[in-house]
Design a protein around this nucleic acid. Sequence first.
DNA 1: TCACTATATAATTATACATGCATATAGCTA
DNA 2: TAGCTATATGCATGTATAATTATATAGTGA
Lengths: 130, 130
Amino acid sequence: MIHEKMVELVARRFQVLGEPCRLRILQALQGGPRTVNEIVGDLDGNQPNISKHLQILFDAGLVGRERSGNSVFYSVADPVVFKLCELVCRSTARHAAHLQQYAAGTRRRSGIQTHKSHLRSKVGSLQGVN
Amino acid sequence: MIHEKMVELVARRFQVLGEPCRLRILQALQGGPRTVNEIVGDLDGNQPNISKHLQILFDAGLVGRERSGNSVFYSVADPVVFKLCELVCRSTARHAAHLQQYAAGTRRRSGIQTHKSHLRSKVGSLQGVN
DNA sequence: TCACTATATAATTATACATGCATATAGCTA
DNA sequence: TAGCTATATGCATGTATAATTATATAGTGA
């Protein structure tokens, strides 16, 4: 599957994607390149914070950037991120649906929480997610 | 792209995948269900640590588990993880190749580090990765 | 019941990281 | 040059998390 030497790098990429603010930035870039200020306007974060997230995305090779006069345009460098988000999104929805489906009628029979018996403690936070 | 209510959940999933040890666990499960002890043997971590990572994977819905006698078998719950790893792996390899390709003949002309001028500081850690 | 094995959890420590504020740097225009 | 805008960076702080050790829990069999 993953060459041992790649594991750390692949994990790092997942980690970079594992930040809500950075996912929102990538969404903001889905329509095309945008300046830092535009992104700051789209999201409601402060400029230094967005800049730092952009630097992290850039280092990971997920976005590219180009200066134009006084502004810097960022853009998505590898569209695979959208594919990834789509897959994870669907998978997450499946999981949430699965939790809700079984949450009602299960009891805790043995010590270890199997998938079904573990549901009840998590579903609460998932209501209305889809 | 991602519904706003989903962003946090999707990010959490990426984050769960963004840990080398957990990726290795998923790899160990690629051939089929395995007990905790078997996984501990495959990787070289200690048992409590592996158990905690397994719990995190379980909570994220990425693995399932089933007790059999005294042992607990874990298995991959959603094969999408392999697709994700494959995509990220390829993307990472592309990025690494891109870094190496341009690393040699670039100079720093302006203050902002564009993709090419930023390469030199990163390529060192990527030698021999593919 | 007791001993044994397998797994999970609690407590601790160290480290990574996101955030916010202040400030520095780069480019533009006059 | 000075003054302005846009972006990046340094620093401090709080929080999340991975790893380690010790211990608890669950299941098996005598």
